[in-house]
Protein backbone atom coordinates (compact mmCIF):
# COMPACT_ATOMS: atom_id res chain seq x y z
CA UNK A 1 0.00 0.00 0.00
CA UNK A 2 1.63 3.23 -1.12
CA UNK A 3 1.39 6.31 1.05
CA UNK A 4 -1.06 8.13 -1.18
CA UNK A 5 -3.38 5.20 -1.85
CA UNK A 6 -6.79 5.31 -0.18
CA UNK A 7 -7.32 3.00 2.77
CA UNK A 8 -10.72 2.03 1.46
CA UNK A 9 -11.98 2.38 -2.07
CA UNK A 10 -15.36 1.23 -3.31
CA UNK A 11 -16.70 1.53 -6.84
CA UNK A 12 -20.30 0.81 -7.65
CA UNK A 13 -20.56 -1.53 -4.68
CA UNK A 14 -23.97 -3.24 -4.75
CA UNK A 15 -25.62 -5.95 -2.70
CA UNK A 16 -28.94 -7.50 -3.53
CA UNK A 17 -30.86 -9.97 -1.40
CA UNK A 18 -33.30 -11.50 -3.86
CA UNK A 19 -35.52 -8.58 -5.00
CA UNK A 20 -34.30 -6.23 -2.27
CA UNK A 21 -31.31 -4.00 -2.99
CA UNK A 22 -29.59 -3.29 0.32
CA UNK A 23 -26.64 -1.36 -1.12
CA UNK A 24 -27.05 0.41 -4.44
CA UNK A 25 -23.94 1.38 -6.45
CA UNK A 26 -22.05 2.91 -3.60
CA UNK A 27 -18.81 4.80 -4.31
CA UNK A 28 -16.49 5.52 -1.43
CA UNK A 29 -12.96 6.74 -0.93
CA UNK A 30 -11.43 6.87 2.53
CA UNK A 31 -8.03 8.39 3.19
CA UNK A 32 -5.57 6.95 5.64
CA UNK A 33 -6.01 8.13 9.21
CA UNK A 34 -9.49 9.43 8.60
CA UNK A 35 -12.48 8.87 10.86
CA UNK A 36 -15.43 8.47 8.59
CA UNK A 37 -18.94 8.19 9.96
CA UNK A 38 -21.64 6.23 8.22
CA UNK A 39 -24.87 7.90 9.13
CA UNK A 40 -28.31 6.71 8.21
CA UNK A 41 -31.52 5.25 9.51
CA UNK A 42 -31.89 1.57 10.40
CA UNK A 43 -31.94 -0.59 7.31
CA UNK A 44 -30.12 2.03 5.20
CA UNK A 45 -27.45 -0.48 4.23
CA UNK A 46 -24.68 0.59 6.61
CA UNK A 47 -24.07 -2.86 8.08
CA UNK A 48 -24.27 -4.55 4.70
CA UNK A 49 -21.64 -2.16 3.30
CA UNK A 50 -19.32 -2.78 6.23
CA UNK A 51 -19.80 -6.54 5.94
CA UNK A 52 -18.90 -6.42 2.26
CA UNK A 53 -15.79 -4.37 3.05
CA UNK A 54 -14.78 -6.98 5.65
CA UNK A 55 -15.27 -9.85 3.20
CA UNK A 56 -18.22 -11.27 5.14
CA UNK A 57 -20.62 -10.83 2.22
CA UNK A 58 -19.91 -11.10 -1.46
CA UNK A 59 -20.82 -7.97 -3.44
CA UNK A 60 -23.47 -8.59 -6.10
CA UNK A 61 -21.86 -5.96 -8.27
CA UNK A 62 -18.98 -3.49 -8.13
CA UNK A 63 -15.60 -3.80 -6.49
CA UNK A 64 -13.91 -2.64 -3.35
CA UNK A 65 -10.36 -2.51 -2.07
CA UNK A 66 -9.38 -2.38 1.55
CA UNK A 67 -5.72 -1.65 2.37
CA UNK A 68 -5.10 -2.18 -1.34
CA UNK A 69 -6.62 -5.68 -1.47
CA UNK A 70 -9.69 -6.67 -3.39
CA UNK A 71 -12.33 -7.65 -0.82
CA UNK A 72 -13.91 -10.27 -3.04
CA UNK A 73 -10.77 -11.87 -4.40
CA UNK A 74 -8.29 -11.54 -1.55
CA UNK A 75 -10.50 -11.67 1.55
CA UNK A 76 -7.81 -13.33 3.64
CA UNK A 77 -5.30 -10.56 2.93
CA UNK A 78 -7.98 -8.02 3.81
CA UNK A 79 -8.69 -9.79 7.09
CA UNK A 80 -5.02 -9.49 8.13
CA UNK A 81 -5.28 -5.71 7.92
CA UNK A 82 -8.58 -4.94 9.54
CA UNK A 83 -10.22 -4.93 12.91
CA UNK A 84 -13.98 -5.36 13.12
CA UNK A 85 -16.53 -4.81 15.80
CA UNK A 86 -20.03 -5.95 14.97
CA UNK A 87 -23.29 -4.35 15.90
CA UNK A 88 -24.05 -7.18 18.26
CA UNK A 89 -21.70 -7.68 21.16
CA UNK A 90 -19.62 -10.63 20.11
CA UNK A 91 -17.10 -11.68 22.69
CA UNK A 92 -17.44 -14.92 24.60
CA UNK A 93 -19.54 -14.29 27.69
CA UNK A 94 -18.37 -17.45 29.37
CA UNK A 95 -14.69 -16.56 29.05
CA UNK A 96 -12.87 -14.04 31.24
CA UNK A 97 -11.50 -10.72 29.99
CA UNK A 98 -8.03 -12.20 29.85
CA UNK A 99 -9.13 -15.39 28.10
CA UNK A 100 -10.99 -13.45 25.41
CA UNK A 101 -7.91 -11.34 24.74
CA UNK A 102 -5.70 -14.42 24.66
CA UNK A 103 -8.07 -16.06 22.21
CA UNK A 104 -8.31 -13.18 19.78
CA UNK A 105 -4.59 -12.48 20.13
CA UNK A 106 -4.05 -16.12 19.23
CA UNK A 107 -6.19 -16.23 16.15
CA UNK A 108 -4.61 -13.01 14.88
CA UNK A 109 -1.22 -14.45 15.76
CA UNK A 110 0.01 -11.44 17.71
CA UNK A 111 3.74 -12.01 18.27
CA UNK A 112 4.41 -13.45 21.71
CA UNK A 113 6.87 -10.74 22.74
CA UNK A 114 4.35 -7.99 21.99
CA UNK A 115 1.38 -9.72 23.44
CA UNK A 116 1.67 -8.84 27.13
CA UNK A 117 2.19 -5.18 26.41
CA UNK A 118 -0.76 -5.05 24.00
CA UNK A 119 -3.00 -6.90 26.37
CA UNK A 120 -2.12 -4.45 29.13
CA UNK A 121 -2.95 -1.64 26.74
CA UNK A 122 -6.30 -3.18 25.80
CA UNK A 123 -7.20 -3.78 29.43
CA UNK A 124 -6.30 -0.27 30.52
CA UNK A 125 -8.07 1.21 27.51
CA UNK A 126 -11.21 -0.62 28.51
CA UNK A 127 -10.71 0.54 32.10
CA UNK A 128 -10.70 -3.04 33.29
CA UNK A 129 -7.46 -3.10 35.32
CA UNK A 130 -7.83 -5.57 38.14
CA UNK A 131 -10.82 -7.24 36.53
CA UNK A 132 -8.89 -9.40 34.08
CA UNK A 133 -10.35 -12.55 35.58
CA UNK A 134 -13.98 -11.46 35.55
CA UNK A 135 -16.32 -13.32 33.22
CA UNK A 136 -17.21 -11.05 30.33
CA UNK A 137 -20.94 -11.63 30.67
CA UNK A 138 -20.82 -10.03 34.13
CA UNK A 139 -19.52 -6.70 32.74
CA UNK A 140 -21.75 -3.67 32.14
CA UNK A 141 -22.45 -2.49 28.57
CA UNK A 142 -19.85 0.28 28.32
CA UNK A 143 -17.02 -1.95 29.50
CA UNK A 144 -18.06 -4.69 27.14
CA UNK A 145 -17.95 -2.28 24.20
CA UNK A 146 -14.50 -0.98 25.10
CA UNK A 147 -13.23 -4.51 25.61
CA UNK A 148 -14.60 -5.51 22.20
CA UNK A 149 -12.72 -2.55 20.72
CA UNK A 150 -9.63 -3.68 22.61
CA UNK A 151 -9.95 -7.13 21.04
CA UNK A 152 -10.45 -5.66 17.60
CA UNK A 153 -7.20 -3.65 17.77
CA UNK A 154 -5.00 -6.25 19.49
CA UNK A 155 -3.25 -6.99 16.21
CA UNK A 156 -2.79 -3.28 15.43
CA UNK A 157 -4.86 -3.19 12.26
CA UNK A 158 -4.35 -0.11 10.08
CA UNK A 159 -8.08 -0.06 9.32
CA UNK A 160 -10.92 -0.44 11.77
CA UNK A 161 -14.58 -1.11 10.98
CA UNK A 162 -16.97 -0.34 13.80
CA UNK A 163 -20.61 -1.22 13.14
CA UNK A 164 -22.81 0.78 15.52
CA UNK A 165 -20.37 0.28 18.34
CA UNK A 166 -22.27 2.51 20.75
CA UNK A 167 -25.84 1.32 20.31
CA UNK A 168 -27.39 0.64 23.66
CA UNK A 169 -24.55 2.23 25.61
CA UNK A 170 -25.22 5.06 28.07
CA UNK A 171 -24.12 8.60 27.04
CA UNK A 172 -21.17 8.86 29.43
CA UNK A 173 -19.71 5.58 28.15
CA UNK A 174 -20.34 6.70 24.59
CA UNK A 175 -18.22 9.84 25.15
CA UNK A 176 -15.36 7.80 26.53
CA UNK A 177 -15.64 5.43 23.60
CA UNK A 178 -15.27 8.30 21.13
CA UNK A 179 -12.23 9.59 22.99
CA UNK A 180 -10.64 6.21 22.37
CA UNK A 181 -11.46 6.37 18.69
CA UNK A 182 -9.76 9.75 18.43
CA UNK A 183 -6.68 8.42 20.21
CA UNK A 184 -6.51 5.63 17.65
CA UNK A 185 -6.94 7.99 14.74
CA UNK A 186 -4.07 10.05 16.07
CA UNK A 187 -1.92 6.98 15.48
CA UNK A 188 -2.87 6.94 11.79
CA UNK A 189 -5.52 4.23 12.10
CA UNK A 190 -8.26 4.62 9.53
CA UNK A 191 -11.65 4.20 11.15
CA UNK A 192 -15.01 3.62 9.54
CA UNK A 193 -17.76 3.85 12.10
CA UNK A 194 -21.48 3.55 11.56
CA UNK A 195 -24.05 5.02 13.88
CA UNK A 196 -27.57 6.22 13.95
CA UNK A 197 -26.86 8.77 16.69
CA UNK A 198 -26.69 12.06 14.81
CA UNK A 199 -24.76 13.78 17.58
CA UNK A 200 -21.92 11.29 17.15
CA UNK A 201 -21.50 12.41 13.57
CA UNK A 202 -19.93 15.60 14.88
CA UNK A 203 -16.99 13.57 16.18
CA UNK A 204 -16.05 12.35 12.70
CA UNK A 205 -13.60 13.88 10.23
CA UNK A 206 -15.94 13.12 7.43
CA UNK A 207 -19.50 11.91 7.13
CA UNK A 208 -21.18 9.70 4.61
CA UNK A 209 -24.95 9.97 4.69
CA UNK A 210 -26.61 6.78 3.54
CA UNK A 211 -30.26 6.20 2.83
CA UNK A 212 -31.85 3.18 1.21
CA UNK A 213 -28.58 1.79 0.00
CA UNK A 214 -27.38 4.99 -1.62
CA UNK A 215 -24.73 7.48 -0.60
CA UNK A 216 -26.67 10.73 -0.58
CA UNK A 217 -24.02 13.13 0.67
CA UNK A 218 -20.56 13.19 2.08
CA UNK A 219 -18.16 15.75 3.48
CA UNK A 220 -16.91 17.19 6.74
CA UNK A 221 -19.63 18.15 9.21
CA UNK A 222 -18.91 21.81 8.48
CA UNK A 223 -19.12 21.34 4.73
CA UNK A 224 -22.39 19.51 4.98
CA UNK A 225 -23.91 22.16 7.19
CA UNK A 226 -22.79 24.98 4.91
CA UNK A 227 -23.54 23.36 1.60
CA UNK A 228 -26.59 21.35 2.03
CA UNK A 229 -29.20 23.55 3.55
CA UNK A 230 -31.07 25.41 0.82
CA UNK A 231 -32.07 28.38 2.95
CA UNK A 232 -32.06 29.42 6.59
CA UNK A 233 -33.18 27.37 9.54
CA UNK A 234 -35.67 28.62 12.10
CA UNK A 235 -36.99 27.08 15.26
CA UNK A 236 -40.51 27.77 16.45
CA UNK A 237 -42.66 26.49 19.31
CA UNK A 238 -46.20 25.71 18.32
CA UNK A 239 -49.12 23.39 19.05
CA UNK A 240 -50.32 21.13 17.62
CA UNK A 241 -47.10 20.19 15.87
CA UNK A 242 -48.56 17.73 13.38
CA UNK A 243 -51.08 20.24 12.06
CA UNK A 244 -48.33 22.87 11.79
CA UNK A 245 -46.26 20.65 9.50
CA UNK A 246 -49.30 20.02 7.35
CA UNK A 247 -50.06 23.73 7.09
CA UNK A 248 -46.52 24.56 5.97
CA UNK A 249 -46.31 21.82 3.34
CA UNK A 250 -46.64 23.49 -0.02
CA UNK A 251 -46.55 27.03 1.39
CA UNK A 252 -44.38 29.22 -0.90
CA UNK A 253 -40.93 29.90 0.56
CA UNK A 254 -40.97 26.86 2.88
CA UNK A 255 -38.21 24.47 1.81
CA UNK A 256 -38.65 22.05 4.64
CA UNK A 257 -40.61 21.66 7.86
CA UNK A 258 -39.95 18.93 10.37
CA UNK A 259 -40.71 18.20 13.99
CA UNK A 260 -37.60 18.48 16.12
CA UNK A 261 -38.22 17.37 19.69
CA UNK A 262 -41.11 19.51 21.01
CA UNK A 263 -40.46 22.26 18.49
CA UNK A 264 -40.74 22.78 14.78
CA UNK A 265 -37.72 23.32 12.49
CA UNK A 266 -38.50 25.26 9.36
CA UNK A 267 -36.13 25.99 6.47
CA UNK A 268 -37.06 29.12 4.61
CA UNK A 269 -35.74 29.89 1.15
CA UNK A 270 -35.60 33.05 -0.94
CA UNK A 271 -38.96 34.83 -1.49
CA UNK A 272 -42.28 33.63 -0.11
CA UNK A 273 -43.08 33.65 3.57
CA UNK A 274 -40.58 35.25 5.98
CA UNK A 275 -39.69 34.21 9.54
CA UNK A 276 -41.51 37.14 11.10
CA UNK A 277 -44.73 36.25 9.29
CA UNK A 278 -44.74 32.69 10.56
CA UNK A 279 -46.58 33.15 13.93
CA UNK A 280 -49.32 35.14 12.23
CA UNK A 281 -49.61 32.60 9.42
CA UNK A 282 -50.03 29.85 11.98
CA UNK A 283 -52.63 31.93 13.84
CA UNK A 284 -54.75 32.12 10.67
CA UNK A 285 -54.80 28.35 10.62
CA UNK A 286 -55.75 28.01 14.28
CA UNK A 287 -52.29 27.04 15.50
CA UNK A 288 -50.75 28.68 18.55
CA UNK A 289 -47.19 29.65 17.88
CA UNK A 290 -44.36 31.58 19.56
CA UNK A 291 -41.76 33.70 17.71
CA UNK A 292 -39.36 32.05 15.24
CA UNK A 293 -35.64 32.00 16.17
CA UNK A 294 -32.85 31.53 13.75
CA UNK A 295 -30.70 28.52 14.72
CA UNK A 296 -27.52 26.85 13.42
CA UNK A 297 -28.50 23.66 11.62
CA UNK A 298 -27.50 20.39 13.20
CA UNK A 299 -26.54 17.43 11.09
CA UNK A 300 -29.89 15.93 11.89
CA UNK A 301 -31.57 18.85 10.15
CA UNK A 302 -29.39 18.34 7.11
CA UNK A 303 -30.12 14.68 7.08
CA UNK A 304 -33.87 15.11 7.42
CA UNK A 305 -33.83 17.56 4.54
CA UNK A 306 -31.77 15.32 2.30
CA UNK A 307 -33.85 12.26 2.98
CA UNK A 308 -37.21 13.98 2.60
CA UNK A 309 -35.96 15.70 -0.54
CA UNK A 310 -35.20 12.34 -2.08
CA UNK A 311 -38.57 10.98 -1.12
CA UNK A 312 -40.46 13.90 -2.64
CA UNK A 313 -38.56 13.63 -5.86
CA UNK A 314 -39.32 9.99 -6.04
CA UNK A 315 -43.07 10.42 -5.63
CA UNK A 316 -43.33 13.28 -8.13
CA UNK A 317 -44.13 12.31 -11.69
Amino acid sequence: MSAGAPAVLAQGLTKRFKAFTAVDHLDLRIKKGEIIGFIGPNGAGKSTTIRMLCGLLHPSEGRAWVAGFDVDRQPEAVREHIGYMSQKFSLYGDLTVRENLLFFGGIYRVPRRDFNERMRFAVSMAGLEGRENALVRTLAGGWKQRLALGCAILHRPPILFLDEPTSGVEPEARRRFWDLIHELAAEQVTILVSTHYMDEAEYCNRIALIDRGKLIASGTPGELRARRLRGELFEISCTPLGAAVKVLTGTPGVVEAAIFGDKLHVVLGEGGISATDLPGYFGEHGIQAGPAHRVTPSLEDIFVQLVSGRRERRTLP
Partner: peptide, 10 residues
Amino acid sequence: GTLEQIMVSP
Protein backbone atom coordinates in the same frame (compact mmCIF):
# COMPACT_ATOMS: atom_id res chain seq x y z
CA GLY B 1 -22.57 -13.18 17.00
CA THR B 2 -19.16 -14.55 17.90
CA LEU B 3 -19.01 -16.47 14.62
CA GLU B 4 -19.08 -13.17 12.70
CA GLN B 5 -16.19 -11.88 14.78
CA ILE B 6 -14.21 -15.03 14.01
CA MET B 7 -15.05 -14.92 10.33
CA VAL B 8 -13.44 -11.48 9.88
CA SER B 9 -10.26 -12.77 11.43
CA PRO B 10 -7.64 -14.46 9.25
